[in-house]
Design a protein around this nucleic acid. Structure first.
Lengths: 156, 156
DNA sequence: AGTAGTTAGTTGATACTTCAAGTGAGACCG
DNA sequence: CGGTCTCACTTGAAGTATCAACTAACTACT
């Protein structure tokens, strides 16, 4: 951290304020729809979606945490709740019993299938339909460049 | 919500996944730095910053909530905590005593001034420096278009 | 004035996230 | 082998967010 602070230029500030507003508002809007229509948070949805797309409908906790962009601790709590609701199961891996493998159950899969159309429609309404194809492309490039700085390892 | 779901095209999906990852990761990274170096969350920082830039260093709760992109309830809890720490004060407005006016104290201002350089440096490191001037401009346009859909009133 | 309706903000219960500490399994090393 | 180290997760406590219910103040109508 250098001695002299480089304050933001007005242009930079405007872009940053927009991004900040987006970070505050979009998750709330997404959570609201999912919660209301399916009783899932966006994070829970992402967890179920991650499991559903994986071989054996299973993933080890660390990988799932990476996929869902959350900490292992957060994931552990969330999976415990999802397990109580009957949407996932956990068991230790045969190979290495430090590893926990989570699996989505049939009930969890049904829940996901029921939630998906509404969620996709919301993403479409708020994000995809708001942008041109070029802008979508720009958004991906911009996002990846920022993520590269935030989280230098793991290039997804 | 229509009968036939329009699933996302691969291109659309990739852009969305990037944006989703950004929404999960960036707030955490920002909060982490602020919390560690100044004991403030990004939301608290935004609240103090909003007050500090306003005439009389004061703002009514609703306006402050709008500025900070949070609900009135959330703001009320946060301001209560900031008040306990001596960083803001609240009093009812003379004109309309339903209205609560929050004011940043000298201690709060000092806290903000102490936190600002590190926070700005972090924003610069993660966002501004990651992007070209054109990309910053694109980001603002893209963000505004999404926000317009999420929150149709209030064009900031 | 009296009453119904609206607005601004607060509160309390519940749920969620985070952080630090803990557990138990495998790896390494003499 | 026995001890230490690291890894993969889990847990409990404390802090924070969210939702619904509530209070108090103003407004509008009769």
């Amino acid at each position: 951290m250098s001695d002299e602070v480089e304050w933001l230029e007005p242009e930079e500030l405007r872009s940053w304020m927009t991004l900040a507003a987006l970070m505050f508002k979009l998750p709330g809007a997404l959570d609201y729809q999912l919660q209301r229509d399916s009783g899932l948070t966006h994070f829970e949805y992402t967890v179920l979606a991650g499991l559903s797309e994986s071989p054996e409908r299973s993933l080890r906790m660390s990988n799932l945490a990476g996929f869902a962009n959350g900490s292992l601790s957060r994931l552990s709590h969330v999976v415990k709740r999802l397990e109580r609701r009957g949407f996932v199961e956990r068991r230790p891996s045969e190979d290495d019993r430090r590893i926990t493998v989570a699996t989505i159950t049939d009930a969890g899969f049904e829940q996901l299938v029921a939630a998906a159309p509404g969620h996709v429609a919301t993403v479409r309404k708020y994000v995809i339909d708001a942008l041109s194809p070029e802008q979508l492309q720009q958004l991906k490039v911009i996002g990846d460049q920022i993520l590269e700085k935030v989280d230098p390892d793991k290039d997804c």
